[in-house]
Design a protein around this nucleic acid. Structure first.
Lengths: 365, 365
DNA sequence: ATAAATTTGTGCGTATGTATC
DNA sequence: GGATACATACGCACAAATTTA
């Protein structure tokens, strides 16, 4: 047997959803409800109080109890699922491709998509996570911010896990958390890039790496590993590292200095196509010919690669597909009560795309 | 003097935010609270009941009352504003540019951005609006869906207005609603395109227009108006209209048929660069040389324009700037208690960008 | 325009049920 | 099993806002 207040609540919700009483229409008074349900005023007040906090009805002192204007939709809303997507960027660079994959997939399955971005700023990741937790979300696709460092927001992520909200990461993963991740094999990508340059006869290699996310660290380690395998011991000046915040400030002059040295590199592997573009521009200003005097290879195979002159050799990976896969996985988890195993994670194979910005080493030693 | 239950609530909220009791920590029992505040059990239960529905605390029958894990953040969340953005698309075509403008601006002002898309589907606009209304949003930037037709979702939009939630539209506007709108002068854009083709000596003009959004209607009217001003009376076969849903299905064959006619046009104005690209591809297949045998002009000056061979002549307008302006306007409205006037709307001036896809008419008559 | 009636809001007391420890 | 603590339920009195006569 149900509690009495529950019976009252269910009846009134029923009035609302069947439009027996329409939005803003007055329903019976407390004393009438007492008689109708044969219960005390306390019970009626408890029931109405619950309905008010659920926003099915609202009360006006001295006037009456009225149906809320959203009451009819409440039941439908229970069936529309919200997937939150929190990435470092939304509208820049390769992110539209990734998000397009998610958007298309989620649209087909009638899911709603809530997108936010962190600008690779931990504080913003924090406030966005809080915000999402306050909303009712049914799943979360997260690109970790500053993934090279231990996450300061691990508490919120654990909160999501403890609430059993389906949760997957893209582009990077958390060693502390057991959640499926979809990411590129950046280590292998770094090896591929180094191998390409070495096979072209280059020995004075340089790598430029972002070191505040794990993608950069992995690409750097792959690059160094491949150099060592080919007996090209990496020396400190071969590796230029930077943080996200430096892109607009100190990084360009660092690159310029590296290109001004007498024994400048004959080939550079850049963290991504954006850095490759910056490097190309600096080389142009220094009258260094690409690729004859300097080979440049990027990463991500973005639209920038074919917009640059010369077209950029780059490491490619399936961006839109990762978005699709992430969306399909989160849908699967939502339908499966969040049960997953190691097989749900995907490590994408990077692929070398040779264009015009790399060529055989013709420097005189 | 406050009500007693309010005093109890405030004290307990204070315990939570000052971390006198930490998340998941047990607070005094109901009878202890009765003694502490010198009130009845009923008053304590009323206070705790409110705090439960506000998610500051949770109760376990037989055990006690505990601080919720989000309690500490509740106060901060009141200060983070959420701006919802609902557009037809997010990650396609010119939308990343528009959204980048919003994202950058809102990020700088510490606003959170909630993005959703409708795919130009009225049902999806409907469910997304419901969803946003259920969430707590502080402002809405909306691109109307199927803006050539009277909006079926006008009820929800009126709901937003009656709640005094700041609300602006982009790309199109609602004649039924008094809200600021930021949009391109599509009529003038249509005139510009027609004028360019006519000034190149073309007289057999054709226009391809999407007619389920007002942008297409306005561009068509501008095109026709300019033709008439130049004594080139538009005949039915000069105007090809289509609906969003036809792009992947019947539209290409319609275009192909138009290009196969004996007296085919010597110049075509396309609703946007995507349609221009489709038209160009069809023309290529029919061995029609662009621009020698057929001039093509697009609209939007998207990235497609410079990716096509030959580069596309197009009508340009400030996309990222519109995003920035929309974000700044919604921030202003949020800070100004939603007071606006006609001066807040912006009509952007379209600009002709001549590239390689249009040339003088050299067809023999 | 005012007073009375109606309706919701606050607050106290009591009894009994049920889950936890 | 017993004590504790929250949950449900009834009743009463008065306050405050609104509606109606």
């Amino acid at each position: 047997m149900k509690h009495k207040y529950e019976e009252v609540e269910e009846s009134i919700i029923n009035w609302a959803v069947t439009a027996k009483f329409k939005p803003h229409e007055k329903i019976p008074t407390e004393s009438e409800l007492m008689k109708m349900f044969n219960v005390s005023r306390h019970t009626i007040r408890k029931a109405i109080g619950d309905l008010v906090s659920m926003e099915y009805v609202y009360r006006i002192q001295g006037s009456g109890i009225y149906i809320s204007d959203l009451a009819e939709d409440k039941e439908n809303l229970k069936n529309t699922k919200n997937v939150a997507v929190l990435t470092t960027h939304i509208s820049n660079y390769i992110f539209p491709s990734i998000i397009k994959g998610m958007e298309d997939t989620l649209y087909l399955e009638s899911y709603s998509l809530l997108l936010s971005s962190t600008n690779n700023n931990v504080m913003f990741e924090n406030s966005n996570l809080k915000n999402l937790l306050a909303h009712k979300i049914d799943g979360l696709i997260l690109e970790p911010t500053k993934s090279a460092y231990p996450s300061q927001n691990i508490g919120y992520l654990n909160n999501i896990i403890s609430r059993n909200i389906p949760f997957v990461t893209i582009n990077a993963s958390y060693s502390e958390l057991n959640v499926p991740s979809l990411r590129v094999d950046d280590f292998k990508g770094g090896k591929l890039a180094a191998n390409h340059l070495i096979s072209l006869g280059h020995t004075r290699l340089m790598g430029i790496f972002k070191v505040d996310d794990s993608q950069g660290i992995n690409r750097m380690n792959g690059f160094i590993s491949e150099c060592q395998s080919n007996n090209i011991p990496p020396s400190p000046w071969q590796i230029l590292t930077y943080l996200s915040e430096e892109i607009g400030s100190s990084l360009p002059s660092k690159i310029e200095n590296a290109l001004k040295t007498k024994k400048r590199p004959t080939a550079i592997f850049c963290y991504n196509d954006e850095i490759a573009y910056i490097t190309l521009t600096i080389a142009n200003n220094l009258n260094i010919k690409i690729p004859e005097e300097l080979s440049i290879i990027g990463f991500d195979d973005s639209h920038l690669a074919v917009m640059m002159q010369p077209n950029l050799t780059s490491i490619s990976h399936p961006k839109e597909q990762m978005g699709k896969d992430a969306a399909n996985l989160i849908i699967k988890l939502i339908n499966n009560n969040n049960s997953f195993d190691a097989g749900d994670s995907i490590l994408y194979e990077p692929k070398l795309i040779v264009r015009e910005s790399t060529c055989k080493n013709i420097a005189k030693h």
